[in-house]
Design a protein around this nucleic acid. Structure first.
Length: 380
DNA sequence: CCTTCCCGCCAGACA
DNA sequence: TGTCTGGCGGGAAGG
């Protein structure tokens, strides 16, 4: 398979542009593209190969984002190479479940040994940690005959999975009152209580960066800095999945602000694959459309900080900038066919409209779900 | 320098 | 066995 790895080599013979630029290959961006590519009606299932080729990335990267997306309910594994698109509407439930699970595992008394709280000050001394490797095997149900295989192995591998790490990371926000945490602390907290080698932490942090990037692109979290210390940290923006019998209340959302999502469409490919093989459309990760709405939702358990952010349908953006016709640099050998189905070329307004309808739809289902409390099946 | 984090090797899991 | 998954950590880009 060759495919040597020449990195900074820079200008490839033939590529007259794009020296390389690491940022255009970030997971966050990839996630945005992924979302905007599949968040449209008609999409039922997603093939990994298809995604990889459409997004112009290696498969390995698809696994990365797919895993975290699944952790949040947006996707569900259907079969080998195949995922089911659940949509944003599945997020609330997923988060709610995560939250419950988090509390359950932790037990009511939210405190553990937590001797070292490393790092310096953290505003609220309330440190209710949670360290556990929720290893709820029995993953995947779907009529899997299998004769209850002990499968003792594999557990170890799975408890280190990106997906699980994502869930635990999210639980940190949902089940704890601290809503700003540095990846370093998160890594230490999520580290299975033992082995705090500088190396293991290092690795964990690397993963958390990956996760944080895709979570950020969906506006679940946001990168900031600790008030005093300039330490970078992440803050939760997503809805605070409230649970239990709390039929429809709070979680209101008046109207959404219409805002233009600036985006540009760049076609870059700085990879040497086969000859004409690249169709990397790069979209801007932006476009929150998050409706921050203060609503007095009753507090759960600890009545302390009652902040409830609401975030709009996460989502992607791929609205071409007004007044700029994107396709003009000549068509290359890219497969516009696939892109064509994904984007409506020429008609910006149309695309915009389309996008909006999707938003509305996603939002609507999401809202009704939260309000109506309709049960839904979640992954595994 | 330090932080962020992409790339892809290669080992488990699975067909 | 071959293919699919996806840990893992080197080391380069970015600041």
């Amino acid at each position: 398979m060759a495919l040597p790895s020449a990195y900074a080599a820079g200008v490839e013979s033939g590529s007259k542009d794009i020296p390389y630029c690491r940022k255009q290959k970030s997971l966050g961006l990839l996630c945005s593209n992924f979302l905007s590519l599949y968040n449209r009606e008609g999409v039922e299932t997603i093939g990994l190969d298809d995604a990889a080729s459409r997004l112009g990335v290696e498969r390995r990267r698809i696994y990365d984002i797919v895993n975290v997306l699944e952790s949040v309910g947006i996707l569900a594994r259907k079969a080998k190479n195949r995922y089911t698109w659940k949509g944003f509407g599945a997020i609330p439930k997923a988060l709610e479940d995560l939250k419950k699970e988090g509390f359950r595992e932790n037990g009511p008394a939210a405190d553990t040994s937590c001797s070292e709280k490393v790092s310096d000050d953290d505003e609220d001394e309330m440190c209710s940690d949670m360290n556990n490797l929720s290893q709820n095997d029995k993953s995947d149900s779907t009529s899997a005959p299998k004769s209850a295989v002990p499968s003792k192995s594999g557990e170890n591998r799975k408890e280190k999975s990106l997906g699980l790490l994502t869930q635990n990371f999210v639980k940190l926000f949902l089940c704890t009152d601290m809503d700003m945490i540095s990846l370093d602390d998160a890594a230490k907290l999520l580290l299975g209580d033992g082995k705090h080698t500088s190396m293991t932490t290092r690795t964990k942090v690397r993963r958390l960066y990956d996760i944080a990037n895709v979570l950020s692109s969906m506006k679940f979290i946001e990168k900031t800095h600790h008030p005093e210390t300039r330490k970078p940290a992440f803050r939760w923006l997503g809805l605070n999945a409230k649970s239990d019998n709390g039929p429809a209340d709070s979680l209101v959302l008046s109207d959404s602000k219409r805002r233009m999502f600036g985006t540009d469409l760049t076609n870059t490919s700085a990879k040497r694959f086969k000859v004409g093989e690249d169709a990397a459309q790069v979209l801007k990760p932006h476009n929150p459309m998050r409706v921050k709405h203060e609503a007095e939702n009753e507090v759960e358990r600890t009545r302390s900080a009652v902040k409830s952010y609401q975030f709009g349908p996460f989502a992607p953006a791929n609205v071409p900038k007004v007044g700029v016709s994107q396709d003009e640099k000549g068509k290359q050998v890219v497969d516009w066919e696939s892109l064509a189905s994904a984007y409506r070329p020429q008609y910006h307004n149309q695309a915009l409209k389309d996008l909006f309808s999707h938003y509305v739809e996603a939002w609507k289902s999401w809202y009704s779900e939260v309000a109506g409390k309709s049960p839904i099946q979640l992954m595994s």
